[in-house]
Design a protein around this nucleic acid. Structure first.
Length: 444
RNA sequence: GCCGCUAUCGUCUAGGGGACUAGGACGCCGCCCUCUCACGGCGGAAACCGGGGUUCGAAUCCCCGUAGCGGUACCA
């Protein structure tokens, strides 16, 4: 079994492309096949080395590896020219100078649903000859059979007048030469498939199996675009998502099996994935479920692993201890710093929080807490917990009347990791210094 | 316009003639837990696009309509 992922390097790899890559990868892994990476760069305008690198970068981040390639379509021009000559020589293709206007005129005469047929000429673009009768049937693993009657099909242009070949021709030849057995790609290619099949047939080649995946839409049901944010793999990474969570989420966007499980580790996906079970209707890409799922994966990470990823994401060092106390409170790597950063960089300045929790009553509670912490033997989470709860009791206060002023004193704001844990991580000296700062009314 | 594809809770989906009082997950709402924010637990609201068939029986099969999407380039 040989599958391929063949993006055109027109910019960052989008979610839809990433899912196509993932499905191909899963099929290859599941079936013990090979994934071939091909870059469709025959559009010289948009295909830059930077764009190619972006795609490779995205695939590496997703940890989707490939067995062969990347092969550049542009480097196969020689082979394309040979095959084109062959089709021209044996009459499967012909040169025609017919323009788009000519095609229109043809349809005006013969009816809009009649496919264009040209006359062979000495010069012009190369068109593939489509049979008059019959139909080309696409047998698709997810959609079943789709019939394209030949009379509706235009003779497709497969090469420009300068002999450079066009997409539908190059794809067919490349898939053939690469020995691709399963073509798994977006549904936007379904209508292209008969053209490619006709090329294959003209060459007397065997057809690969096809599987056309439903397209992905944005939350508004429209085609996914930059407007939707986080539409590219890079944006997902920057937003603090984990590649394993993205894989899990993407796998479930357009595929599901009888099992109700939602959290499915990659190895499990490899075991269970079956392209025949891919859904036929387009799916919307929504961040909510990904965020939730990402949180699940974050919580399952070993603290060392989580800390390493947080360090890479924030560019900070030695985050282990805070990572441990923030782990269950964040859904993405990006959520971490706003929550725990103040423990490292010092309290933030939140006037509303000071106003609410550091007035007379709050300061008294804070002073009492300071005293208890200063006298404490040891400075562990447990001892801090016990000491502060004694303070609460002795003041006949509600817990939050003591804990919130403390939180505002050490973090500057009303949201932070657990108060005992936070204090323990800071250490007695730093904790007391921050409390003193707050009591002194210093802006921190 | 033409050629195609698709149609189950707001979203992702399970369902492939009777097991459907239509299941799960996210989100939403309520309650519990609780030092904030979360996590977690419990409960709730929420869907078969419409109309015709076929059948003893239809979310499941067929047709029509409607809607959405794709293709219709000497783009990929």
């Amino acid at each position: 079994m040989r599958v391929r992922f063949a993006p055109s390097p027109t910019g960052a790899l989008h979610i839809g492309g990433a899912r196509t890559a993932l499905y191909n990868w899963l099929v290859a892994r599941h079936g013990g096949g090979t994934l071939v990476l091909r870059i469709e760069d025959t559009d010289r305008e948009r295909s830059t080395p930077e764009n190619v690198e972006q795609i490779l970068d995205a695939l590496r981040w997703l940890e989707l590896d490939w067995g062969e390639g990347p092969v550049l379509q542009s480097e196969r021009a020689q082979r394309h020219a040979e095959v084109l000559e062959r089709l021209l020589a044996d009459g499967h293709a012909y040169r025609s100078s017919a323009t788009a206007e000519d095609v229109k005129a043809f349809k005006a005469r013969h009816g809009a649903q009649r496919g264009f047929r040209g006359e062979p000429e000495a010069e012009g673009a190369v068109r593939l000859r489509v049979p008059e009768e019959g139909a080309t049937v696409v047998r698709d693993l997810v959609r079943g059979e789709t019939r394209f009657a030949h009379e509706h099909l235009d003779d497709p242009v497969i090469a420009r007048a300068d002999a450079s070949v066009l997409y539908n021709f190059a794809v067919a030849v490349d898939d053939l030469d690469a020995g691709i057995t399963h073509v798994i790609r977006g549904e936007d290619h379904l209508s292209n498939t008969p053209k490619q099949l006709l090329v294959l047939e003209a060459l007397g080649a065997r057809q690969p199996q096809y599987a056309h995946l439903p397209l992905l839409h944005g939350p508004d049901g429209k085609k996914l675009s930059k407007r939707h944010g986080a539409a590219s793999v890079q944006e997902l990474r920057d937003a603090g998502f984990l590649p394993e969570a993205v894989r899990n989420y993407l796998a479930l966007l357009g595929w599901g099996d009888a099992d109700d499980e939602t959290i499915i580790p990659t190895e499990e996906l490899v075991r269970r994935f079956d392209v025949a079970r891919v859904s036929r209707n387009p799916a919307r890409f929504e961040l909510d479920k990904l965020r939730w799922m990402n949180g699940r994966y974050m919580r399952e990470l070993a603290v060392d692993d989580l800390a390493a990823r947080l360090e890479a994401h924030t560019g900070r060092e030695s985050l282990g201890p805070i990572a441990a106390i923030a782990q269950e409170k964040i859904q993405t790597l990006a959520d971490f710093w706003p929550l725990a950063g103040p423990l490292v960089d010092g309290p933030v300045d939140d006037a509303a929080a000071r106003e609410r929790w550091l007035r007379e009553e709050g300061r008294e509670a804070l002073a009492a807490a300071r005293e208890a912490l200063a006298e404490l033997e040891g400075f562990s989470v447990e001892s801090i917990d016990a000491a502060l709860r004694r303070v609460v009791e002795s003041r006949a206060a509600k817990p939050k009347q003591v804990f919130q002023p403390l939180r505002v004193a050490i973090a500057g704001t009303t949201v932070s990791p657990g108060i005992f844990e936070s204090l323990a991580v800071l250490g007695r000296e730093e904790a007391l210094a921050r409390i003193d700062g707050a009591l002194a009314g210093a802006p921190a």
